[in-house]
Amino acid sequence: MKLFKNILVIADEASMSDSVLDRAKWLAQSNDARLTLLDIIDASPDDLEGMFAVLPGRRARDIQDAVMAFHAQRLEGFARTLRESGVEVSTRVLNGTSFIQAIRQVLTEGHDLVLKGADQGPDRPFLRAPDLHLLRKCPCPVWILNGEARAKSGRIMATVDPDPQDRARDALNHRVMELATSLAQQEGAKLDVLNAWHVHEESTLRHSFIKMPADEIQSIISGEQTKSSQRLAHLMAGFREFGDSMRVLHIKGIAADVIPEHVDSEGIDTLVMGTLGRTGISGFFIGNTAETILNRVSCSVLAIKPEGFVSPVQLEDGEQ
C-alpha cells in the first residue's frame, strides 16, 4: 500500500536535520511520492520591510531580497541531494507564522502528509507550541520526528479506542490501523497495537461510602472488560493478515498513563495515533486524551485527524 504521494517537509533551520532528510527520502522512494521542501521565515514581509527601513535607498529592498535568496539557496542544497537519489522535489520559501503558513500550503497544494523535525533542545519539552499547533490544526496527518529518528522505524505502536457505534471514531481507528500496519510492513518494523480500557468511577465504587460488595464491583469490571475486548476484536478482524507481525495489547488503565508508559518501557520509536475531538467544528481540534499523550511522550509521533475535520486556519483571499 502506498501511504503518501504528496509530502510536505518543513525544512526551516530549527526543524531540518539529517534524520528528517533521510526519512523524507525513504518515504518518497518507498511511496513513489513527490516532496515539497518548505522554509518559513518567521516574520511577515511587512515586518522585514520595517526592520530594514533604516537602510538608505534601495539597500533595504536589496537586503530583503538577499534574505529570501539565502533561504531559497539553502533549500536547493537539500533538494539537490534528494534529486540525486531520484526523488521529485520542489521548494518554497514563505513568510509568516510557521504553523499557519504550513497549513495554508497543505490547503493550497493538497499535501497528504506533513513531515517535520521537532524543535528540540536540552531544556525544552519534545513538543513545543508551534509543533502542537500544527498537530492540532493541520487537516492532513502530521509526523513529528524526534532527534534520534532514523530513516526507518524499528518499533511502531498504534493506539486505538474502538467503538463501532461511533462512526467517526470507528473510521479513525481503521485509518490508524491502515497506516500503522502498512508502515510497519513497508519499513520492516515491529508493531504493537494498544487499547487501554478502564471502568469509570471504579475508585468511587470501591469507597466505603458506597457500600458496594466486592463481587458486584468485580462483575461490573468483568462486564466492561468483555465489552471492550469484543470491540477490539471487531476492529482487529479487518487486519488478520498482519497477525504474525503485530502484537495486540488490551491493557486496563487510563490511556493517558498506559500509552506513555508503554512507549518508554518498550522503546517505541514511532507512535501512530488519532486525535479525535469533534469533526466539522472549527476550533475543536483535538481530544483531551490525545493532548495529554502528546505532552508526555518523546518518541516520533504520527497524528491523524478524523474525516470531516475542519482546520481553523483558512486561506487568505485570492488563495486557492
Score class of each variant (00 low, 15 high):
Lys2Gly: 11
Val9Lys: 00
Ala11Ile: 00
Asp18Lys: 14
Val20Ala: 10
Ala24Phe: 13
Ala24Lys: 11
Gln29Asn: 15
Leu38Tyr: 01
Ile40Leu: 02
Pro45Ala: 02
Asp47Phe: 09
Gln73Lys: 12
Arg74Leu: 03
Leu75Val: 09
Glu76Pro: 04
Glu84Asp: 12
Gly96Glu: 04
Val106Asn: 04
Leu107Val: 08
Asp112Tyr: 06
Asp119Thr: 06
Asp119Ile: 13
Gln120Leu: 12
Gly121Asn: 08
Gly121Asp: 14
Asp123Ile: 11
Leu127Asp: 06
Ala129Met: 12
Pro130Ile: 07
Pro130Cys: 06
His133Arg: 13
Leu134Tyr: 03
Cys138Gln: 01
Pro139Leu: 08
Val142Cys: 04
Ala151His: 03
Ala151Trp: 01
Gly154Trp: 10
Ile156Arg: 06
Asp161Tyr: 09
Ala168Phe: 13
Leu172His: 01
Leu172Pro: 02
Asn173Leu: 02
Ala180Lys: 04
Val199Met: 08
Ser203Arg: 12
Arg206Phe: 01
Arg206Leu: 01
Phe209Glu: 13
Ile217Met: 00
Ile217His: 00
Ser222Tyr: 02
Glu224Ile: 15
Leu235Ala: 03
Leu235Ile: 09
Arg240Val: 11
Ser245Cys: 12
Leu249Arg: 12
Ile251Ser: 10
Ala256Phe: 05
Asp257Cys: 02
Pro260Asp: 01
His262Ile: 04
Asp264Leu: 14
Glu266Ser: 10
Ile268Asp: 01
Thr270Glu: 05
Thr275Gln: 07
Gly287Gln: 04
Thr289Glu: 04
Ala290Trp: 08
Ile293Trp: 00
Leu294Thr: 03
Arg296Glu: 09
Ser298Pro: 02
Lys305Asn: 02
Val313Gln: 08
Leu315Asn: 05
Glu316Arg: 14
Gly318Cys: 03
Gly318Tyr: 09
Gly318Ala: 10
Glu319Pro: 07
